[in-house]
């Protein structure tokens, strides 16, 4: 569960204390931003996602009832903001093809190309795959935690992790194309 300090902050914020809420944002912004960045690998977009998540946090903190760890709850919120962002990007793309906006800012390096392709591939494997991969592998969460965040059972997460491994094994090594 959460450390007592966070718990106190949350309760005070829920009681309407703005400085406690500010402190809460401060202490979790890093987590929020880093996950957002991993999602889109683009600084400005990650900042947008993170800001949206913070606003959403303000709007829905009253609903947090200490039934799950705060960080799990927060992750859930950030994931949903990231998904919203992605959907909007896709709509955007269909409407008018915007070039630079979507390009990850580290797109020059070979590693980045590889990661970009990898995440795209994961996405094409099905619903929730990218989310699962990022939470489990990039964030190092347990299957149970990832399940709680994504609202699916632990076994679904395990199944997804297994599927990803199996599917990616079958594919051509992508990085070498660009090497």
């Amino acid at each position: 569960m959460d450390d007592p300090q966070t718990t106190v902050l949350i309760r005070r914020a829920q009681d309407g204390n703005a400085s406690a809420f500010g402190e809460l944002v401060d202490s979790h912004y890093d987590t929020i931003y880093r996950f957002a960045w991993k999602w889109c690998r683009h600084r400005a977009n990650a900042e947008d996602i993170a800001q949206q998540a913070c606003i959403k946090l303000a709007a829905s903190l009253a609903q947090f009832r200490f039934e799950a760890a705060f960080t799990s709850w927060l992750y859930r919120l950030v994931v949903s903001c990231a998904q919203d962002w992605q959907r909007s990007q896709q709509r955007h793309l269909h409407a008018e093809l915007s070039g630079d906006e979507l390009q990850p800012d580290d797109s020059r390096t070979e590693d980045a190309i590889y990661i970009g392709q990898l995440l795209e591939q994961l996405e094409s494997l099905g619903e929730g795959m990218k989310e699962t991969a990022l939470l489990v592998h990039a964030e190092g969460l347990s299957h149970a935690e990832a399940g709680a965040i994504l609202g699916v059972s632990e076994s679904t997460i395990s199944w997804r992790v297994h599927t990803m491994r199996k599917q990616l094994q079958r594919r051509e090594p992508l990085a070498s194309i660009h090497a």
Partner: peptide
């Protein structure tokens, strides 16, 4: 982000 969230808050 902090300011925007506080405003909302």
């Amino acid at each position: 982000a902090r300011r925007a969230a506080l405003e909302e808050f």
